[in-house]
Computed example of a mutant assay.
Amino acid sequence: MSLSVYCIDLTKHSFSIHGEDHQGKLLIHKTISRSKVLSTFANIPPAIIRMEACGASHYWARELAKLGHTPKIMASKYVAPFRTRAKNDLNDTVAICVVVVRPSTYDRTQAVTH
């Protein structure tokens, strides 16, 4: 069984999340407050979690790894070409998930270890 993929766009006060299962079925597509991120992911079975690199991405990757997830960080330059709509946080999360299914781009991302 393949793991589900959740993509997060990290911002200062609210985080946008887009999740798909191994068949591409939408699991979640919403924005949550910073204070609810860990409780949200604590209630999700272990999954691959993708995020763009930023000042806080390594912190969040370590926290999500403690919950049993597999966080991976990618450079934002790989996300921008796959954004199909206006630039906003939720559209960025969809673009991150599109990048995940592209093997040539997937290999350039960084896995975070504890």
Rank of each mutant, 00 (worst) to 15 (best):
V98P: 00
P103G: 07
S57M: 00
V5K: 08
H18V: 05
H58V: 09
T93A: 03
I49Q: 01
H22R: 12
S39W: 04
G55E: 03
H22Q: 14
T40W: 09
A65D: 14
K66S: 13
A95T: 08
R62Y: 02
S33M: 09
L64M: 12
K66H: 10
G19E: 12
G68C: 11
R83I: 14
S2D: 11
R62L: 04
R50E: 10
P81Q: 02
A65G: 12
P81M: 02
R85N: 10
M51Q: 09
T93Q: 02
H18T: 13
K77D: 10
K66R: 13
S76I: 03
T105W: 14
T105I: 15
H69C: 04
D89E: 13
T70H: 06
S76L: 01
R62F: 00
I48A: 06
T105E: 15
R108C: 15
C97H: 10
L67K: 11
W60D: 00
P103A: 11
M74P: 03
I8V: 15
K30N: 09
F82K: 02
K77F: 10
D89P: 05
I44W: 00
S4T: 04
L26W: 07
R85H: 11
I49P: 03
I73Y: 02
F82I: 01
M51L: 10
A111Q: 09
N91Y: 07
G68D: 09
A53E: 08
M74N: 04
I48K: 10
H22F: 14
K12D: 06
N43T: 07
D107S: 15
T109K: 06
T105S: 14
T105A: 15
H69T: 12
R108N: 15
A75Q: 14
L90I: 09
L27V: 01
Q23R: 14
R108M: 15
R108K: 15
V100C: 10
A53L: 06
S57D: 01
D21F: 06
I17V: 15
V5I: 13
I17E: 03
P71Y: 05
I28D: 01
Y59F: 15
R85W: 02
A53H: 06
G55I: 07
R50A: 12
N91M: 06
V37E: 06
D89K: 04
S57A: 04
Q23F: 13
A47W: 02
T40M: 11
D9F: 13
A80R: 12
V94P: 08
A56M: 01
L90S: 05
D9H: 14
K87W: 02
T113E: 14
N43M: 08
S104F: 08
I17S: 06
L90K: 07
S16L: 02
H29V: 00
I44E: 00
A42E: 15
V101N: 13
L38H: 08
H58I: 06
S57Y: 00
E52G: 09
V94Q: 13
V79R: 03
M74C: 10
H114L: 11
D89C: 09
V98R: 11
I17M: 03
A56Q: 01
